[in-house]
């Protein structure tokens, strides 16, 4: 579903991604872990078509970037630490706007379905500016799945959430993944990542240092694996 070969990203003289190789199979949930400045967000922005690769090959859902960016965008849902929502519109109006931008058919029923999924059905007529950070983040997931994308990218979705909100977000993320979508999530929260993902990749200084599946991890600890990968 995602194939990345020898990806290099430079900003001026600074090289952020240094020949990164990465691949994700359909239906996989990959947690991309790594220290600050490792290049996680830069990498996700390239996959999200928001940034162009300097060199290398990037393929998402069978389409090449940046040449076929529009086809990729139609198949992609992105959630970042910013909810990308309009505070002066209601939850329903926000979803309606994005449904129009993605050309979603049967918008009314799809919006109801998505609001139910993120547990905000009874707040559909409320302005987003009255929502807590957790509710905004759940609605952000609703926004990202409104067009039923095949691939989902989550960039630090837990940033700024309290314990309760994080647990609710866990449930929403599980339901998103359970629908068979391919998911790539960056996170600093190893415990949450360990609970949700089926594979863990450690990214540091612009390359993938190590990778382990949930099955391989069963007899060991993700934190130990993470620390060991960074030391090696």
């Amino acid at each position: 579903m995602i194939i990345v070969k020898k990806l290099i990203k430079r900003f001026g003289l600074k090289t952020i991604l240094r020949g990164l190789d990465f691949s994700v199979r359909p239906g996989e949930f990959v947690a991309l872990l790594g220290p600050n400045g490792a290049g996680k967000t830069t990498f996700l922005r390239i996959l999200a078509t928001l940034s162009r690769p300097s060199l290398g090959q990037v393929q998402v859902a069978g389409y090449f970037l940046p040449q076929q960016a529009a086809q990729v965008r139609a198949r992609l849902g992105v959630v970042s630490h910013q909810p990308l929502l309009y505070p002066d519109l209601t939850a329903e109006e926000n979803l309606q706007f994005y449904a129009q931008m993605y050309g979603v058919a049967n918008q009314r029923s799809r919006i109801t379905e998505v609001l139910k999924m993120v547990g905000l059905e009874n707040r559909r007529k409320d302005l987003v500016r009255t929502f807590s950070r957790g509710m905004q983040q759940r609605l952000a997931i609703g926004r990202a799945v409104i067009h039923d994308p095949e691939v989902m990218l989550f960039d630090e979705p837990y940033t700024g959430l309290d314990q309760d909100a994080s647990e609710m977000l866990d449930d929403v993320l599980r339901s998103v993944a359970a629908e068979g979508r391919t998911v790539v999530m960056t996170s600093h929260d190893l415990a949450r990542a360990a609970d949700l993902a089926t594979r863990f990749d450690i990214l540091s200084r612009g390359v993938i240092l190590a990778s382990i599946t949930q099955a391989e991890l069963q007899n060991s600890n993700l934190l130990t694996f993470y620390k060991q990968a960074l030391v090696d």
Partner: peptide, 13 residues
Amino acid sequence: DRGCMDGLLLAPV
């Protein structure tokens, strides 16, 4: 400021 520009740029339009 609200990051919504990214939301617009992500749309397949």
